[in-house]
Simulated scan of single mutants.
Amino acid sequence: MNKKNKYAGKWFIIGIAAFVMAGICICFVVDREMQKLAAAKLYEQAAASEHVIGEDESESRSGKDPNQPDTGDKSSREKSTDQLTDRSKKQKDQEKSQQTDLSADLPVNIAEIQKEMPDVYGWIEIPGTKVNYPVVQREDDNLYYLDRTPEGSSNIEGSIFSEDYNRRDFTDPVTVLYGHNMKNGDMFGELHLYEDKSFFDANRDLYIYLKDRKLTYRIFAAVLFDNRHIMQSYDFSGEDSFLSFIREIMSIRNMRSNVDGDISILPTDKILTLSTCHGMGSDYRYLVLGVLQNN
């Protein structure tokens, strides 16, 4: 009996231990599952929160109150975007049209001329004279067009040209254009018409045509001058030198010169000077000067 009771007590203890261990395992498994469920729920809540915050930030950046209902759908937003795109396209088309219209209003198309004569950058016209020619400038060779046409062919008449002391947009304080004094009046031959006072008074307009605009000058002086190289003799980057040149021109009084003493030239003005030879000899040049009226 004592032996049986001993074995029965032993198995009872083993059973209790097994039951306790099984309970512990079950609790552990249940706890892990509960943790997984809790983690999944937290993840869902965090994702939902992030989505809402993202929408709020987007609406805030666009200036929209996130608390207000969204009354616009996707199609309306796409329509608004299309309208902005169309408006931008129309504005660009209008600007392009304005540029085209401006070029169309010019009597010469410099861009087209440059396809055949790349050194042409402008065109000069003086109503009442034969002066109606392209204007050229040769890089690194100021004498190139002295005896060449704008096409580059040799010709004693040469071309109307500027030197590289001047920019090609006529924005320098003084721009000088050169042309031969041809006996038949070609090139700058007819500038000598300005020696006559009545002709000077009646023909004061001078035009320069560029790619995209027309420059209008008012002729204020036509004078017999010496043969100094104007761009090398005066420092037009300084106001004093500019005014000194203007005073010298305005003070000339002789039978071959005409000056409008009523016109005022300011230091900020842009002057176009046309230079050609004179029959009195190589020591002289005949200059016709105009002041820019429009920018």
Rank of each mutant, 00 (worst) to 15 (best):
Y144N: 10
N155F: 09
Y144H: 08
E139M: 07
R148L: 03
S162K: 03
S159G: 05
E139Q: 08
I160L: 12
N132H: 13
L146Q: 07
P134D: 01
Y145R: 02
P150M: 03
V135D: 01
V136M: 03
N155Y: 10
N155R: 02
P134W: 00
Q137D: 09
S159A: 12
Y144K: 07
F161P: 02
S162W: 02
S154F: 15
N132C: 12
L146M: 11
S153P: 04
D147R: 05
R138M: 06
V135Y: 00
E139W: 04
T149N: 03
D140F: 01
Y145E: 04
Y145S: 05
N142I: 14
V136E: 01
P134V: 03
D147E: 12
D141R: 01
S153A: 15
Q137Y: 06
G152L: 02
Q137I: 03
N142T: 15
Y144D: 10
Y144E: 09
S162H: 05
S159I: 00
F161H: 04
S162P: 13
R138E: 08
D141Q: 04
S153G: 14
V135Q: 02
I156M: 06
V135F: 01
I160Y: 10
V136F: 00
S162G: 14
P134M: 01
R138D: 08
E139Y: 08
S159H: 05
L143W: 13
Q137S: 11
F161V: 12
L146S: 11
P150G: 12
S162V: 13
P134Y: 00
E157S: 14
V135M: 04
I160C: 08
E163H: 10
D141W: 01
Y144S: 11
T149K: 02
I156K: 07
N155I: 13
G152W: 03
Y144A: 12
I156C: 06
V136L: 03
F161E: 02
L143C: 09
Y133M: 04
N155M: 01
S162M: 09
D140I: 00
F161L: 03
E151G: 10
D147Q: 10
D164C: 13
I160T: 05
E163W: 07
R148I: 14
S162A: 12
G152C: 06
S162L: 06
D141E: 07
N142D: 12
E157F: 07
P134R: 00
N132F: 07
D147G: 08
E163I: 09
L146Y: 08
Q137A: 12
S153D: 14
